[in-house]
């Protein structure tokens, strides 16, 4: 059976058209991708710059606060505050300090007292002073 010559030219033109469209789509997407990538780079660069500025600012604020805290906690400043506020704060005398000894080794305390080693000594020390 002979071919239908009427539709032949259309069938021939369809393939190259698709190819051309694909090529165009490729170049267009490549172009768009390139631009998008450049925009993203610029966007990230701006973000980096902004965050670096923020980090530096926070660093400076942190430094300033650290310095302020250090100045406020200097021994001379604390002494001056205690005097100014007239709190009557003084350091305890050595005999006013009760020392709690860390538990070490085997207990020498009587079991019935149910006290950790060292506590008994403290209790006795405190009792003897009273």
């Amino acid at each position: 059976m002979a071919r239908n010559v009427k539709y032949q030219p259309l069938a021939v033109r369809f393939g190259p058209a698709i190819k051309a469209a694909l090529l165009c789509a490729f170049f267009a997407s490549a172009g768009i991708g390139y631009v998008w990538q450049k925009t993203q780079i610029q966007h990230l660069a701006d973000q980096i710059k902004r965050l670096e500025g923020r980090k530096e600012l926070l660093g400076r604020q942190n430094d300033a606060l650290t310095r302020a805290a250090a100045t406020l906690s200097t021994p001379s400043e604390l002494d001056a505050r205690v005097r100014k506020m007239n709190l009557g704060l003084v350091r305890p005398q050595p005999d006013q300090i009760i020392r709690l000894h860390e538990a070490s080794g085997e207990s020498t305390a009587q079991p019935e007292l149910r006290l950790r080693p060292g506590i008994r000594e403290t209790v006795q020390l405190y009792a003897s002073r009273r």
Partner: peptide
């Protein structure tokens, strides 16, 4: 006096007395 107080150095005399009382 002030440094011993600040560092809370255990008082020698009282400590010895207390330890003698506890027999340690």
């Amino acid at each position: 006096e002030r440094a011993a107080n600040y560092l809370a150095i255990p008082p020698e005399i009282i400590r010895n007395q207390a330890l003698a009382a506890t027999g340690v």
